Simulated scan of single mutants.
Amino acid sequence: MNRTARVIRDLLLTALIFLFLGLVVVRLDERNRAALSGQARVVDGDTLVIGGQRIRLVGIDAPELRQVCEREGQPWTCGRAAKDHLEALIGEGRAACAADGSDRYGRLLAICLVRGLDLNAAMVGSGYATAFGAYDVEEEMAKRNRLGLWAGTFDAPRTWRRTHGGMDELPHMPNGTLRIMLSRLGDWWVEFWND
């Protein structure tokens, strides 16, 4: 077999392997989707429980319950304030959550709405949570308006957890990220093949 035929064979085999892996990932991604609704109990500024299922608001990171920040030169229990703010946003409303997978702690990663309000975006937009893989626009607005955490000084929740022995986690990938990555890989492959 000549060199050109071997290169073409190897490229086709590589493409088939990527296609197979992509289909497996997309299939697993679809299996992890869930919809939950009901009265939510707030655990902290980015975690809810609905029907016994723990839900982590995807794309955001709120201060931990014990976390203390500073506002106007005074200590401020920002973790407790974040929880209280999320409770106020929910009120007596029923939360509807669309989960797209789970984190390594078994919590569903979800976007949750109450009366049409996106709780994830509202927490970041009000300054009671930071962007953690999504909601960068809301965070910039909260910073500019010095809302919530941005009215004083604070350690990023992830940094605070690391220095206080809490659970560490990586920023969340927004919903559909796997499909977007696979689509870009496919686009790259088509460009490569056409060149």
Results as ranks from 00 to 15, higher is better:
residue 94 R to A: 12
residue 180 I to W: 06
residue 12 L to T: 11
residue 84 D to Y: 07
residue 13 L to T: 09
residue 163 T to V: 08
residue 173 M to V: 03
residue 106 G to L: 07
residue 160 W to E: 04
residue 90 I to T: 10
residue 33 R to L: 10
residue 99 A to I: 00
residue 144 R to F: 10
residue 19 L to A: 15
residue 182 L to C: 01
residue 173 M to H: 09
residue 106 G to M: 09
residue 7 V to M: 09
residue 190 V to L: 11
residue 18 F to Q: 02
residue 117 L to S: 06
residue 134 A to L: 08
residue 67 Q to G: 09
residue 128 Y to W: 14
residue 15 A to N: 00
residue 47 T to E: 10
residue 80 R to V: 14
residue 58 V to Q: 05
residue 59 G to I: 12
residue 89 L to R: 09
residue 117 L to G: 02
residue 105 Y to F: 14
residue 4 T to V: 14
residue 175 N to I: 13
residue 151 A to G: 13
residue 76 W to I: 10
residue 134 A to P: 04
residue 175 N to R: 15
residue 160 W to S: 05
residue 58 V to W: 02
residue 31 R to Q: 14
residue 83 K to Y: 04
residue 76 W to F: 13
residue 116 G to R: 15
residue 60 I to V: 15
residue 36 L to S: 00
residue 190 V to P: 02
residue 35 A to H: 04
residue 4 T to F: 14
residue 94 R to C: 00
residue 129 A to C: 07
residue 132 F to Q: 02
residue 58 V to M: 05
residue 155 D to M: 07
residue 38 G to N: 00
residue 153 T to C: 02
residue 178 L to R: 01
residue 177 T to S: 11
residue 191 E to D: 13
residue 133 G to F: 13
residue 193 W to A: 14
residue 36 L to D: 03
residue 38 G to D: 03
residue 163 T to M: 06
residue 40 A to R: 00
residue 121 A to H: 04
residue 24 V to R: 10
residue 158 R to I: 06
residue 25 V to E: 00
residue 123 M to S: 05
residue 93 G to C: 08
residue 62 A to C: 04
residue 141 M to N: 06
residue 31 R to P: 01
residue 95 A to D: 02
residue 144 R to I: 04
residue 107 R to A: 09
residue 78 C to H: 11
residue 28 L to F: 07
residue 44 D to K: 12
residue 111 I to S: 12
residue 56 R to C: 06
residue 49 V to I: 15
residue 86 L to A: 04
residue 190 V to S: 01
residue 93 G to A: 15
